[in-house]
Simulated scan of single mutants.
Amino acid sequence: MQPMNEVAGLTRERFEREVAAGYEPVVMRGVAAHWPLVAHGRAGLETCLQYLMGFDQGTPVDAVLAKPEPTRAFGYKPALDGFNFLLDKRPYAALFEQLWRYSHFPDPPALAAQSALVSQALPGLAQANALPLLDGSIAPRIWIGNRATVPAHFDDSHNIACVAAGRRRFTLLPPQCAPLLYLGPPDYAPTAAPMSVVPDLHTADRTRFPLVGEALDQAVVAELEPGDAIYIPPLWFHQVDSLAPHLNILMNYWWRPMAAPQRPDDLHMAALRLAMLALRHLPDGEREGWRAMFAHYVFGARGDQLAHIPEGQRHLFGEVDAARDAEVRKDLADRLKP
Rank of each mutant, 00 (worst) to 15 (best):
L277D: 13
N252T: 01
R256T: 15
Q262H: 14
W254I: 08
A278M: 02
L267D: 09
A271V: 06
M251I: 02
R273N: 13
L250T: 09
L277C: 13
P257R: 07
M276W: 08
A260C: 06
L267G: 15
A259W: 04
D266F: 05
W254S: 00
D265P: 04
P261K: 06
M269Y: 11
A259Q: 10
Q262C: 09
A260I: 07
A270L: 14
D266I: 10
I249L: 14
P264A: 07
N252H: 05
D266V: 12
Q262P: 00
L250Y: 02
R263A: 15
L274E: 09
L277H: 13
A271M: 08
M251P: 05
P264M: 02
L267P: 00
M251T: 00
D266M: 05
H268Y: 12
M269N: 04
D266E: 08
L277N: 13
R273D: 08
L250S: 09
N252V: 05
R263H: 11
H268R: 11
H268E: 15
A275S: 11
A275W: 06
A259Y: 07
Q262M: 13
W255H: 03
M269C: 07
A270F: 11
P257L: 03
R263T: 10
R273V: 14
I249K: 04
M258S: 15
W255M: 07
R273G: 02
P257Y: 03
P257K: 06
P261M: 05
A278T: 01
R256A: 10
R273H: 12
W254E: 01
M269V: 11
L250W: 04
D265F: 15
L272H: 01
L272P: 01
M276L: 15
R263N: 09
M269L: 15
N252W: 04
D265W: 13
R273W: 04
A270R: 12
L277M: 13
H268G: 14
P257T: 01
W254T: 03
I249G: 03
A278D: 04
N252L: 08
M251S: 02
R263P: 02
L274N: 10
R273Y: 04
A271K: 00
W254F: 02
L274P: 00
M276P: 03
A259N: 07
D266L: 05
L272D: 00
A270Q: 11
L267I: 12
A271G: 12
R256H: 05
A275G: 07
P261Y: 04
R263V: 15
R256G: 01
R273T: 10
M251L: 12
I249Q: 10
L272V: 14
A270D: 13
A259E: 08
D266G: 08
D265Y: 15
I249D: 07
A278W: 02
N252I: 04
R256W: 01
P257V: 00
A271H: 06
L272S: 01
M276F: 11
H268M: 15
P264L: 09
R256C: 07
A278V: 01
M258N: 10
P257M: 04
W255T: 03
P261W: 03
M251Q: 10
M258T: 11
R273I: 12
M251D: 02
L250H: 02
R273K: 10
